[in-house]
Design a protein around this nucleic acid. Structure first.
Length: 269
DNA sequence: CTGGTCACCTGGAAGC
DNA sequence: TGCTTCCAGGTGACCA
């Protein structure tokens, strides 16, 4: 589920519920996530949440003297529940904050829950991350400069977190459709004019997805229904063989870097 | 540095 | 029904 919009919707749901509250309990039912959940994480009780931030697809829970870093991987979700709610099969981690329970469910266990007391910018997972796509830093000239030294297909370029964070497999295809660019085009062959359209397309696509997720947000966050709603309106993603919503040409699916890419061979050049 | 491949893990859908 | 195969929203590690 989680690309940048899902993580951001989760962040917005959590921030007002967690900020200022003290962590009263931690439960680790399954420490074998992407990396083992350490003893430091179990020692969280007593700390107060100062803020909930996001960098790329990482959620950062600021605890004053350090940060809890949470990544949802491919299948992770976070929910706010009443304390005492029975845990399901893949509910691996709980954070209790008084009368609130924050629960991580992650069937595939590609997610992560880490603690760092050092500077965030120095953390190995965060230090080399690229530009935030929704920030002003991602403007056409910047995109063009980033793409210049890159010979891989533009689709894979978009998903390279060392250059741009947060754009995953769904929104890469969707953004390229919106910009009218062939996903197979080499990144360094994307013109400045195309970068103009692409930068706008990325921002539009991500913002629209955040809006769609935010509207269905209630007592839980990061639910599957939000991206589901968005996906049902996708231009190309998961629509192989179906007619393009713009020109009725059959949508194609190809493999790029072991991932599926969807595009309209007529609208995207 | 770049670019390509593999690995991690479970579950659902499709095919036989 | 049951078995096999493929596919899935991420990304670090390792290699040439």
């Amino acid at each position: 589920m989680p690309e940048l919009p899902e993580v951001e919707v989760t962040r917005r749901g959590l921030a007002p519920q967690l900020t200022g509250r003290m962590i009263s309990g931690v439960e680790v039912r399954e420490p074998r996530l992407r990396w083992p959940v350490t003893q430091e994480v179990r020692a969280l009780p007593g700390r107060t949440v100062r803020a909930v931030r996001r960098r790329g697809k990482y959620l950062l829970v600021d605890c004053g003297d350090g940060h809890l870093i949470v990544h949802l991987g491919m299948s992770g979700s976070l929910r706010l529940l009443p304390p005492g709610t029975p845990a399901g099969k893949h509910d691996h981690f709980d954070l209790v904050l008084g009368d609130r329970l924050l629960r991580l469910r992650d069937p595939r266990r590609f997610g992560a829950v880490l603690w760092t007391s050092g500077a965030l910018e120095a953390h190995p997972l965060l230090a080399r991350l690229g530009v935030e796509p929704l920030s002003r830093a991602l403007h056409p000239a910047r995109l063009h400069a980033l793409a210049r030294g890159c010979r891989m297909p533009v689709k894979q370029f978009l998903m390279d977190a060392r250059r741009i964070v947060g754009v995953g497999n769904i929104y890469a295809s969707e953004s390229l459709f919106r910009a009218g660019i062939d996903p197979r085009r080499r990144a360094n062959r994307v013109s400045l004019e195309q970068c103009r359209r692409l930068a706008a397309a990325i921002k539009h696509t991500l913002r629209a997805a955040i809006r769609a997720g935010g509207s269905s947000l209630r007592d839980y966050v990061g639910a599957d229904s939000a991206p589901g709603d968005f996906q049902s309106r996708a231009w190309v993603y998961d629509r192989e063989g179906e007619p393009c919503r713009r020109c009725a040409t059959e949508i194609r699916r190809i493999a790029q870097g072991q991932r599926s890419t969807y595009f309209c061979p007529r609208c995207q050049r």
